[in-house]
Design a protein around this nucleic acid. Sequence first.
RNA 1: GGGCGGAUAGCCAAGCGGUCAACGGCGGCAGACUGUAAAUCUGCUCUCUCUGAGUUCGGGGGUUCGAAUCCCUCUCCGCCCA
Length: 391
Amino acid sequence: MNDKIEQLLIRGVVEINIKADLEKKLRFGKKLRIKLGIDPTGSDLHLGHLVALRKLAEFQKLGHQVVLLFGTFTGKIGDPTGKDKMRQPLTDAEINKNMQSYLEQAGKVLDISKTEVVKNGDWLAKMNFEDILKLAGSFTVSQMIQRDMFQERLKNNRDINMVEFFYPLMQGYDSVAIKADVELGGTDQLFNLMAGRKIQEAYGMTPQNIMTMSILEGTSGVEKMSKSLDNYIGVMESSKQIFGKTMSIPDHLMSKYFELLTDLSRHDIDQLLAGHPRDAKLQLAEEITTMLHDEKAAHKAREEFLNVFAQGGLPSDIAEMKLAQGEYPLLDLVIKSELCVSNSEARRKIGEGAVKIDDIKYNQLDEPILINDDPKVLQVGKRKFVKFVAE
RNA sequence: GGGCGGAUAGCCAAGCGGUCAACGGCGGCAGACUGUAAAUCUGCUCUCUCUGAGUUCGGGGGUUCGAAUCCCUCUCCGCCCA
């Protein structure tokens, strides 16, 4: 089983603090408590979240106790990482709803029945001012502002709210509360994870080991995957969307996606990447779709993709729209189709030559189109379709 | 508490009385090219009943024939002094 431990310590991992220490514990077969925190601020997980969740699942499969921590309290404040604004406070009802949804989604890679699920509101909400002072006492201001994010903001004359200093303190205290042996997070979490070590020590505990995971870039290939940048592949999306979005990632990301999101061995990955990039990407898309749906759905998505994009065929599930028989100016049809966000955009798209009817390009706004018993397929751009049928 | 500076479209950022729907960059969309991409080239990127019109430059009020640009006030932010 040694190779599994090695795999655990290497794959997708950027840094372990302290590696030798963690490896020793693992080799001795000690059952460890592994913490991963999630702020239940939205309701959707994407592939970026799965990187750490998959690592958590790896620990779980080796028999360790996995603890999924929901930041029900910290979620009200927001991690300063990558943000320049504080979060809108969420209501308890929203938080609960998000938690349920997250659990269901995490279940795609994790065995929830064996997972300990906790909320930090259970202890953080009960602390009194004395407790808080004790906690705050474990850090100095200069240690706190060492954090890259704070440095950045100071440099750019941006505000830092006092409350934000408490975020790492609270996250660190969570590790005390749940007696974490190991905490996972993205590389951008390094500071908060280290705070956990420091605070555990201040509370007389053995500091946790921390493991930072590679950050997954989004579909456009430059910035990290995030919902607000709209470059994400959502865990709950349809097999068709997951497949298509995976196919649209830049080639150079394939290796990383394979490593972080599939179980293929390095050897197999290298072999795939040595072949035709398109085939490698098809394989990647199929693996990821299988993980989030099943093999059958993945296979179907692949067929569909090849048909629509490689052969220029039509998707099998075009939305239908009923219209009274008769002639319509092209612009009217495009507006009615709701494939454009505004009428102005509809005009532009026609002018750009992005509009086709039954695969024939038209660029006159007033081009008359006859709607009769023959259904007409309107296409805007590469991937938006509507089928018009006469009533 | 006092002084100074700032708030411009999704983001960054120019403009500082008319020619401003507002330079430029990023991002996004479309077309060409492709392997589905990337890179590259081209066009577009507030709305509408679209060769014209309407609404935008933190909020409100004012000056002016005319304001993103000047004045007053409010809100928010940063810096410096206490």
